[in-house]
Design a protein around this nucleic acid. Structure first.
Lengths: 252, 252
DNA sequence: AAAATAGAGATTGTCGAGAAAATGAAATTT
DNA sequence: AAATTTCATTTTCTCGACAATCTCTATTTT
C-alpha cells in the first residue's frame, strides 16, 4: 500500500472522526489492547485480578513490550489499575464508583440528546427510524423467548441509543459517552454473572420504554426524551444495586 | 516502605478518587508521560511534529520501551496520533476539532455546575469564596499590569473554575472535563504563541465576568451561573477563531 | 520534464536478557 | 505464640539488539 505520510494522516484523522477502524494489519500492541479490553468488559477477567506479564504472554502469545503498552492504555481509560513497581490489575469494582460513572454517563447522554434533537436532519431521523424498527423486533423477540438478552438484542440496543444522540455535533461528547458506557457495561456484566441472567429485565417492558423514547425523539420533544432516557437508564442502575438517589433530577 | 498489596490498592484507589499523586519515585514511563504531555500542552512541541523514538531518547534520556508506553497513553487521550508502522506524531490542530472540543467541554461544565449548585454544602461554599477572593486579586493585578497572563493568574483561574463545579458529585464528570480542558488549553497556547500575547484578554473585563459567575454560584442561581459560564468560555473561543455558532444555546 | 523504479539508510515494532524491587516462606528473636 | 528478620524466588521495568517496514534520494524510463 504505497501512501505518503500526509495522506495517511488525513485518512486516520478522518477515520477517527467517524469512529472507524482503518488498520490493514493490526500491531501486537493493538491486538493486546483489543483482546484484554474485551476480556475485562465482558467479565472474563475478574475485577481486582492481577495481570502478570508472564501469564498474559502465555495466554495471548504476545511479547512483554506490546502487552505493557496495551495495559498502559487501559490504565488511562480506567479499566486497569497500574500499581507502582507492582504491575497491573483489573480495576476493582465498587458501587460508589458505579453511581459516579452513571451520573456522568446519564448527564452526558442527556446533553448529547438535547443537542441531537436540536440539530438532527432528515438523514439522522432516518437512522433513528431504522434503529427503532430493529429495536422493536428484538424487544419483541426478547419478550417472547422469556430468556436473557441475545447478542442481536445487545447490538440493536447499542445502535438504538447511539442513533438518538448521533447528531449532537461533537464527536468528543460521543467519545466521552462511549468510554463511560464501556465502564458501566463491565459493572452490568459482572452483576449479571453473579445473579440470575433471566432476571436481567425484571418486570420491565423495555420495549415500551424504547418506543416512548423514540416517539419523544422523533417529535423533537427534548425535555421528555431526556427524562425518559434518564429513567430508562436509572431503572437498570437501581436493579443492579446502585444508589439512584445520587443520580436523579436535581431541580424539583 | 513496607506495605502489603491490599493496603497499597486502597491507598491508590483513594488517592485517585481525590485526584492526588501518590508516587514515591516515578517510573521512567510515568516520567516520559508527564514530560511529553506537558511539552505538547504547553506548545513546546508543535502540532503535527513527528515524535521519533531516537530523538525522544536523546532529549529525555529515557529508553525506548517507557517512551512507547507514554506515547500510547497519550494517543488514548488524543494528544498524540499513532500511525500504523509509522510511529507517533503530536496530534494536528484544526478549528473544527476545537469547536467540537469546546462544545463537549462547555456542556459538561454546565452539567457539573448545575449539579454542584444543587449539592454543594458549606465546605464547598467556603472553597468558592476563597477561590473568588484570590481570583479577584489576580484579575486586578492583571488589569493593572496591562501585560499578559502570569502563572499565578493561570492557577487562580484554574482553581476558580474547578471550585465552582467541585461539588457535582461525580469524579468521572470532573475527570472528563479536565481531559477536555487540557486539550483546549493546547489550542489556546498555540494560538497565543502565534498572535500577540497582550491581546489575550482583548477588551474584556475578565474580572467582572468572574465576579458575576461567583455571585450567581453563591446565590445558587443555576440557570444564570450556567449561562454566564458558557458566555465566559465562548468569548475565549470566538477570539481564538473557533466557530461559536456550533456551541451556543440550542433552545431559544 | 515528469513519472516510475531501485536501493541505501533510517525508523518502527518486537523480543529476550538482566538489574532492581517485591513477595513469600523459613528461621530467628521477643 | 507473635513479631521480626533473612533470603531464595518471582515479578517488574528497562535496555540493547534485530527483523520488517518505511523513507528519501538518485537513477532510469516514458
Amino acid at each position: 500500500m504505497g501512501m505518503n505520510l500526509a495522506a495517511l494522516v488525513e485518512v486516520i484523522v478522518t477515520a477517527r472522526a467517524n469512529n472507524l477502524n482503518v488498520s490493514t494489519h493490526e500491531s501486537m500492541a493493538q491486538r493486546a489492547y483489543r483482546l484484554i479490553r474485551a476480556d475485562i468488559i465482558s467479565g472474563a477477567r475478574d475485577p481486582g485480578e492481577r495481570l502478570r506479564i508472564e501469564m498474559l504472554k502465555t495466554v495471548y502469545d504476545i511479547g512483554p513490550t506490546p502487552l505493557r503498552e496495551a495495559l498502559q492504555k487501559l490504565s488511562t481509560e480506567g479499566l486497569v489499575l497500574a500499581l507502582e513497581k507492582r504491575g497491573f490489575m483489573v480495576s476493582p469494582l465498587n458501587l460508589d464508583e458505579f453511581s459516579d460513572l452513571n451520573i456522568a454517563r446519564i448527564e452526558i447522554e442527556k446533553v448529547a440528546l438535547a443537542r441531537s434533537l436540536a440539530l438532527g436532519d432528515n438523514q439522522w431521523e432516518s437512522r433513528v427510524v431504522a434503529a427503532t424498527y430493529l429495536m422493536k423486533k428484538e424487544d419483541e423477540a426478547l419478550l417472547a423467548s422469556g430468556a436473557g438478552v441475545y447478542d442481536a438484542w445487545e447490538s440493536a440496543n447499542a445502535e438504538f441509543h447511539a442513533a438518538m444522540i448521533a447528531a449532537c455535533g461533537s464527536k468528543w461528547l460521543l467519545q466521552m459517552r462511549d468510554q463511560l458506557q464501556d465502564m458501566c457495561e463491565r459493572y452490568r456484566r459482572s452483576s449479571i454473572s453473579q445473579s440470575n441472567k433471566k432476571t436481567v429485565n425484571g418486570n420491565r417492558d423495555v420495549g415500551e420504554e424504547h418506543a416512548a423514547i423514540s416517539d419523544a425523539v422523533l417529535s423533537r420533544n427534548s425535555e421528555l426524551a431526556c427524562q425518559l432516557t434518564e429513567s430508562h437508564y436509572m431503572k437498570t442502575l437501581s436493579r443492579l444495586g446502585g444508589n439512584p438517589n445520587l443520580v436523579g433530577d436535581l431541580q424539583p
